[in-house]
Amino acid sequence: MTMRVMKARTIADDLVDFLANNHGCLARVHSTFHHAVNLLIRQDELITLTNQGEIAPMGCMVDGNDIFKQYLRPGDEVILDMDRIVAANGAFSVYLCEAQVWKSEILADLDPRPLDELEQTTHQLTEWLGQQPALGLLPLLAPLTNQGANILQPDNNIYSRYIANDLKDFTDAMLASDWELALSITDRLLGFGMGSTPSCDDFLAANLLVLSLVERLNPGFYPWVGGFCNTVANKAERSTTLISLNMLRHAGNGKMSRSHQRLVQTCLFGDTGDLKHLANQVLQHGATSGGDFLLGLVCALNWYRNSKMDHSKEGEEAWVESMQSQPVSIL
């Protein structure tokens, strides 16, 4: 009859901040899975405890193999203290003191890859992705990365078929640097697809992640990115699941779970590991989440490469012009 005591192995730095400023508050269980539980804080934010999988923003990895579903039900109360998290029903507690702190934000103060390397990396990733099982949105890989394939193939699944044209419109708008159009098209994408994080949300999360990093890498060149990311997150509040909303918010702030973080870092900055290995780790996420994210990533990298080439072509003039752009309106 003693309480099960778990030790945290890793904790995200944003969660540490939250606990330091809000210790002694109550969270409610939002959703339970076998090896993870999501806790709801404030209005619509989630903290994740897990003992498998990996560390993510506002997340905490604990030791053991326990099945969280046995301890908690949605609606149960959990007490958050500075050094521990305790289930109010006494089922378990998590001691945080010895956990390693994980930086949730991708560092943007590293040297970015030169363009030709970026192109090579993108090409490698796209080719590799083309060899993976075509689940989720992956049947749209070729048409979306402009490999000339027909947008509607007979073996597309029902979701990819339905959303194909909207996704193409989105990537075309981004490539044409029409971010306002792209933003409006997200209305036709958010919340669409299988899973607790619908496929299109995973796709968009990759885009938001790249956008937010790119903005930091090139200060002043993409002033619209902040507003873009915020707007997508606001739209998501009404159109998708809470879990997905949180993912999109984090992505817009340059944060995503560790494997995604490392992959994107490798693509943009080079050498934090073997590209295919990292991509494979991401692919393992969910049934199609990983694949959908990777599709979004290659599209976003294409956009970025394109826009960098535009910028270098236009030179100083373009820089001045973008500095004088309209301030971003947050819808």
Partner: peptide
């Protein structure tokens, strides 16, 4: 299990909340 592990501090927090 005892509520909040039976620890006084947790129980106090819980009742305050």
């Amino acid at each position: 299990k005892p509520k909040a592990g039976g620890k006084k501090k947790m129980l106090d927090l819980l009742s305050k909340i």
